[in-house]
Design a binder for these strands. Sequence first.
DNA 1: TTCCATGTTCCGCA
DNA 2: TTGCGGAACATGGA
Length: 260
Amino acid sequence: MPELPEVEAFARYFAKHALKKRVARVVVRDERVLGVRAETLSRALRGAAFREVRRHGKHLFADAGRQWLHLHFGMSGELTAHEDPKAAPRFARVIFVFSDRTCLAFEDMRLFGVVDLTPSPEQYVEDHSLGPDPLTPRFTPRVFSELARGRRGAVKSLLMSQDVIAGVGNLYADETLYQCGVHPRRSVADLSGADLRVLHRILRGVLRTAVERRIQDRGLPPRWLFDHREEGKRCPQCGGSIQRTAVFGRTTYFCGKHQR
DNA sequence: TTCCATGTTCCGCA
DNA sequence: TTGCGGAACATGGA
């Protein structure tokens, strides 16, 4: 489930369980999640202590001194801390073992995640043409309007394009449009300046609320679309019928009555 | 057994 | 150039 709010919760979890601890060794159980050679990763981290953790969109970065550890969670990645490395679960692909013998496991059942190294978060963002993180002050309504200007595609595509906004995936794109009452296939060119300002405000509200909930390990509000992602279900806001379609190659749910 | 899944990337086409 | 559809990646669950 890792989109921006989940990754923010992972960042807090990382800070709690891994920051300021010295890395004793790195156990690579499955090299397929690595973006660097196992030996390179080990050499970069062994003996180092993570000094700071940062997040940009769905990407997590931890300062290991000369380099930063970069984690991307793909479809099914998550972090879990354990008292004993031997207790790390089945899908733990990489395990960071600390000198106090506790460990942090990068779990990823479906193997779409990535563990690698980068010179700095800024460099990574630059190299991968990531857009601004929508929860930073830099992401103003004006910046959002400029990013949207000139785009012809569907508004859902805009929200999910990582080079426009970093961190919004399928679920939170649907959620935002649902709360705005905007149809996911509505053309960006068709949105007024006022529409874009509303979209910007609701997007940030959705993400902020989701971050709070995820940090507390709670579910999302019952009146959100989130728990009603099923064709034919009743819309908790207007009683309309939830529809299913595909936009931007992803399964998309929306209310056929109040999203226009 | 078949279909589907919260992500990214690449190719081909309009 | 931009944007989109579709496929591919790997694996488990409904």
